[in-house]
Design a binder for these strands. Structure first.
Lengths: 219, 219
DNA sequence: ACCCGGCCGTATCCGGCGATACAGCGCGTC
DNA sequence: GACGCGCTGTATCGCCGGATACGGCCGGGT
């Protein structure tokens, strides 16, 4: 699908280190490109810490459309939602690059939590972060203004992956308009239109394929 | 604002029992109607288990509009998101009825987790459930079809609060069209229009003020 | 009985998004 | 170099949701 890194999520290094410290105590699994880590509606108690590679997490709606939740790159966790509450998975995770991941099993996690209470805290911090991200996405999705929806995504990416630049923050991750569309619930055409408008307003520019979000576009 | 119970969220009894067992070990706080438990942008490490009363959790957008996340009734938890990740609160919680709540403090929770690993599991199950609910709301919010958005809300309420009825599931919680609008990101008028359409299609009916969701409206 | 405020229903109008179609463009492949 | 494919930029059109306005209904308060 792509050879560029296009992750849209990652955690702080401290949390990642905590989870990585379990290497050796849990299974390491490798997934080929196109292989699924888990599939919507399945029941499973496993969740995954991505060591390397890239995993796309999305929800397939009944009408066939796909909502991309995140692209999980190195140091991201996925699948813990359904692993803990025991209900069928609400999303599908597919490796879109060869991926190496630690596989945790909630059915066997209680001893780990008992032995290492910090793990519990780390997990709680992490799920809390996800909750925050989801809530913020919700906040902007209720708006039907595509400008709003798209800016929210760009700001998030800017916080996670951007580097400073004279014109703002340069976002070192490339998403096609179509991917942005499926993450923001708009059409591909509208993404193009809207980003054009933002460019005219001076809130956006680009350089060698990357998007630069002007600082005045924050908030 | 209302004297009817209008909760939109609750957890399983097992989880509630676990949290209730900490009564005595943590502070109990009472909030008057209209009083805030916490406010957007504040930094705090506390979260709350609602024992009785009703708490509205919402996000105020920069343009002044309010997005209602949930109405937390008895046996609901709120505020744990920002309490664990340490960032400013992303939502505001207001008691819309006199409310009694247990106040947990994440800064003092490590000993509790250490002493009782089941608490960690319970919290993780709970945040996972919230993650699921948020993700499902997201799934339907990306759709711009108000029918889709509103049905998702009704189905959720139906699972949480409804009782069986000859015409489907009777939802024992009353929301005004305006509240539904602010939870689904549509306008009040559209809620009226859409619910009228659903009624015509036979997916909805009502009885003494409560909404009945026909069983064929599931899925 | 009267008024008033909140909520529901409905009409009109306008703007903008989705669907669709097509044209240029960069890039990799053969 | 020629081709093809995927991505971006635009145009047109139809539709539908938001804004706004207004009327009816019900319930509570005085």
């Amino acid at each position: 699908m792509s050879k560029k890194a296009t992750a849209t999520w990652r955690m702080t290094d401290a949390l990642a280190a905590k989870l990585l410290s379990f290497e050796g105590k849990v299974r390491v699994r490798r997934f080929a490109e196109g292989e699924q880590l888990y599939r919507q509606d399945d029941v499973s108690t496993c969740f995954y810490f991505v060591k390397s590679g890239l995993v796309q997490v999305s929800i397939f709606r009944r009408d066939g459309t796909e909502v991309v939740l995140e692209n999980m790159g190195p140091n991201a966790l996925c699948g813990e939602g359904a692993a803990f509450d025991g209900l069928p998975r609400f999303s599908t995770a597919v490796a879109i690059e060869p991926t190496e991941a630690l596989e945790f099993d909630t059915a066997r996690i209680e001893p780990l939590l008992r032995a290492d209470p910090e793990l519990a805290l780390a997990m709680l911090r992490l799920t809390s972060l996800k909750q925050r991200i989801l809530a913020l996405r919700l906040e902007h999705l209720v708006s039907n203004d595509p400008e709003d929806r798209i800016l929210e995504l760009l700001r998030r990416l800017s916080q996670m992956f951007a580097i400073d630049h004279e014109r703002g923050r340069k976002i070192i991750t490339h998403l096609t308009h179509e991917q942005i569309a499926s993450m923001t619930g708009t059409s591909r055409v509208t993404v193009t239109r809207t980003m054009g408008r933002l460019r005219e307003k001076g809130m956006l520019s680009s350089e060698d394929g990357f998007t630069i979000l002007a600082n005045n576009a924050e908030t």
